[in-house]
Structure formats: C-alpha cells, structure tokens
Design a protein around this nucleic acid. Structure first.
Lengths: 243, 243
DNA sequence: CCCTAACATGTAACATGCTACTCATGACCG
DNA sequence: CGGTCATGAGTAGCATGTTACATGTTAGGG
C-alpha cells in the first residue's frame, strides 16, 4: 500500500478518559478547587465533570497511590497535603535517584540533548523574568524530567514525576513568599553549566545541593504548617542523611 | 475462550477485594497459571475467580503500573516478562535506593531490629537447607523489606517491593539452574554481619555487591531468553553504572 | 489469484445499578 | 442532664449494563 505522507495521525490518539481525568484533578488540586482536608465524593466529582464514576474513581486511585489523595471507606476521599515526614521521604528518594541519573546523563549526553536542556533552562529563565510562576514550575519539572530521560531510565522518570506531584501541594502557591523565582532559577544554573561542560561530578553535586536546599525548605514549611516544634535537621538527617 | 485452570479462590479474608485480587493474580503469574504472552480478558479472569470485573480490572491496572501486565485496548491484557532493559532499570533504581537505606538502617537500628533481621536471615537459611525455594524467595524479599523498614522510608519500601515483583518473572523458577540457594544465601551473609556489627559502610557495600551480582545474573538470563547478542555489561553500565 | 470491504466476534473503557457500611442526628431512657 | 441506641442520609466498593473499537473472517469484485 502506498503511504500518504503528511497524513500521519490526528493527534496522538486522545488518551483514555481516566487518564485525562488524572490531569484534570491534579490541576483542580493545585488550583485550590479541591481543598485539602475537606471530604469529597466520587459521585459529586463525576457529576461536576459530567462523566461517570468509573474513570473518576480510577483517576483518584492513581492519585491515591502517590499519596496526593486518601480514600475513606464509605465516607469519601480527601486531598492530603504531605506531612513533614513525607517531604523528607520524597526528597530522600529523589536524591538517591536523580543524583546518579544526572551523573550518567552528563557522561552520555548527545549534542542534541545538551541543546534541549539549555532550551529548557532558557524557558525557565523567561518564565522567571515575566513572573509566570505556573509556567516556571512547569519548566522546572520538565528540566528534571529531561535529565532523567537522557539517563534512559523510564521507570525512574515515572517515579520521580509522581514524587514531584505529591510535593506540589507543599510548595505551589507559596514559592514566592520564601524564595523568588530568580533564586530558584540560579539554583539550577550550576547543574546546567556542569552538564554542558560534561563535568559529571560537578553536575551530580550541583543536583545534590539543589535537591537538598529545596527539600529542606519544603520540610521547614511543612513543619510550620503542622505547627510542629520538631527539628528540621533531625528529620532530614534521619531519612535523607548521607554520612 | 478457553478457561484457565488453577485460577480460583481468593486467599486471605481481609482488606478490599481488589487488594486481595492483586495478591491472587501475582501468585497466579508466578505459579505460571497466567502465561506470559497469551491474551487474557478481564471478563474471563473475573469469572474464574467468581467475582465481578471491577475489582479484577482494578487489580490488573495496579499490576500494569509496575509493568507486570499490559493492557491492549479492546483486545485484552498480557503478562509481560521483563525485557533486559527493564531488568537494568530496575536494579539501577534498587541500587540507588537500597544501598543508602541499608547504610542509614545500620546506623540507627535498635537491638530489637537487629534481632529481627537475624531471625529473617535464619529463616532464609532454614529454607535453603530444606530446599524450599518459594519460602526462600519469600524470606529474601522480607529481609530486604525489613532493612528499608528500619530506614523508615515507607515510600521507598513500596517502590522497591513493586520493582522486586516486576523481576520475579525473570528469576523465579530458574534460580537453581544457575545458582544454588546456598550461593544466594551466602551472598546475603556479609550484609547481615555488617548490619549486626553496626558497620554502616560495610553493610552498604555488601548490599551493593549483592544487588550488582543478582542484577547482572538476571540481566544475562533476560538477554539469553530474548536471544539477544547484546553485551550484558554495556547495558548494565549504561543504566546502573556508578563511575 | 489478489485486494477490498462488509461483517462477526470479543474486548477495554465507560456508565449505571446495588449493597453494606460509616457516621451524624436526635429521640429515648436512666 | 448525660449516655445509649434507633434511624436515615450518604458513600466506597462491588456488580452489572452499554458502547466504541480492534481484529479475524469471509464474501465479492477485479
């Protein structure tokens, strides 16, 4: 059969409804439409979205696995902001995965990949200058994702993406109160520079520093929000310490 | 379609039905009741188990997330044995997570926890001596789980458990062909000894050695099964290398 | 004989029905 | 007045109905 160039596909076959619902619900949570702590029902959400309960339940189950949401049998479900301990767990794992990933990625990156990372960083930069925080967060996420992609470990990529999701609630709208976008931006710069210079060790240690400062910051916030008097460093060192 | 003999009876009577179905299906896969490659349907499995499609679908979706199973829209689902690349991915992640976890666990373990680990090892030992491979595998899994438990990172524990599951297919019934239970057992001994001696560095490096030898072994097997001529070390180093 | 397309079959994905449970409320009793 | 218990509303979890689609089969045209 003769191929028909230019007629490849009408969009990547629209994902399943459940899949799209995950995205929708994530946005709703981040936008504050779904308030942490309040009790919701699958019933109600399905009606609001104009779809049936099945895909909604499926989406929520997925989000429940990341810890973003918790089901209460015969009661409903809640959006749960991550507790301090969760933050520490998450960043401990991210440190373990992303630091070696960046080291390997730096060693094996192609010219195209270097250019792609640079473009991501410049997108972050632009978003920072125009003060577009949602876009900034988006590009931040994708920069991290790209590095893991280059490393070639798709599973690790999915794990890290899920972990990031779970922490979004702890950071999102309060980023600017503690740290300007500029500060977060320059936190990433050494990673990108070391990556481009093919200095794997420098890239790895830059990533380590970046994740540690970000993690500790979010941990402090979570402790404050919880009204806990516990010490940040003791929790951090216990779970994410690297002696 | 043909029935699936040997697939019946939901084991424990607790938790949700979907949860129990996950366990049942995992066992069915490991026992070879659900054959890799063959096309099954939710409909059929539900009937064999004497329950409805909902919990079965939910369970399969969970297993699909770990990569143990793959859905094909409007076709059915398959059990997929891990490809060589998957094995390398999985062990790369396990190395990243378990090595630091053991290091921290060793530093912070209580006397009770030391005793518990010792008991696990002795259980492995007993299973090895009596040649009970399923029990051996079980205790092996639980020894690793216990170490992560002691580290206190529940998320990491779940991640590693899922990864282990995904590789079970690659190892399971063929352990003895390449390696005796005794060999696997003594592979664990230095970890336990270092743990008891509170020598964190030794425990970490023993774990690293253990995971590397096991991972490489399973990788070789997967390559052979795939009829691939690719080099074990090039794949391994690319994904799990630690320069 | 090859190619095409209508058709039949079987399925995941989605929609809807049903049930046992949780919990708030308030009447009733000590 | 405080505590117990019926009761009713509302839900997750499970069961079942429905739909759109991917694929194997086969009839029909060249």
């Amino acid at each position: 059969m003769s191929p028909t160039p230019g007629l490849s596909a009408l969009d990547p076959h629209s994902a399943s409804l459940a899949e799209r619902t995950i995205v929708t619900l994530r946005k709703a949570v981040l936008a504050g439409v779904l308030v942490p702590g309040r009790l919701y029902s699958v019933y109600q959400v399905a009606e609001d979205l104009g779809i049936s309960r099945s895909p909604v339940r499926e989406a929520l189950l997925r989000l429940a696995e990341t810890g973003m949401v918790r089901f209460e049998r015969n009661r409903g479900f809640r959006v749960v902001p991550p507790a301090p301990h969760d933050i520490a767990e998450i960043f401990s794992i991210r440190l373990a995965l992303e630091v070696p990933a960046v080291r390997r990625a730096t060693l094996h990156a192609s010219a195209d990949e270097r250019a792609a990372l640079r473009r991501r960083y410049e997108a972050m930069e632009a978003a920072a200058h125009s003060g577009d925080e949602p876009a900034f967060e988006e590009h931040d996420q994708e920069l991290h994702a790209l590095l893991i992609d280059i490393d070639g470990n798709a599973r690790a990529g999915r794990i890290v993406a899920n972990l990031r999701d779970a922490t979004r609630l702890a950071g999102a709208s309060t980023v600017e109160s503690d740290r300007s976008l500029q500060e977060v931006l320059i936190d990433h710069l050494p990673i990108v520079e070391a990556f481009e210079a093919a200095d794997a060790e420098a890239a790895a240690s830059s990533m380590e520093r970046h994740l540690e400062t970000t993690g500790r910051l979010l941990l402090r916030r979570a402790l404050r929000r919880h009204g806990s008097t516990e010490d940040e460093s003791s929790i951090w060192d216990r779970l994410a310490g690297r002696p």
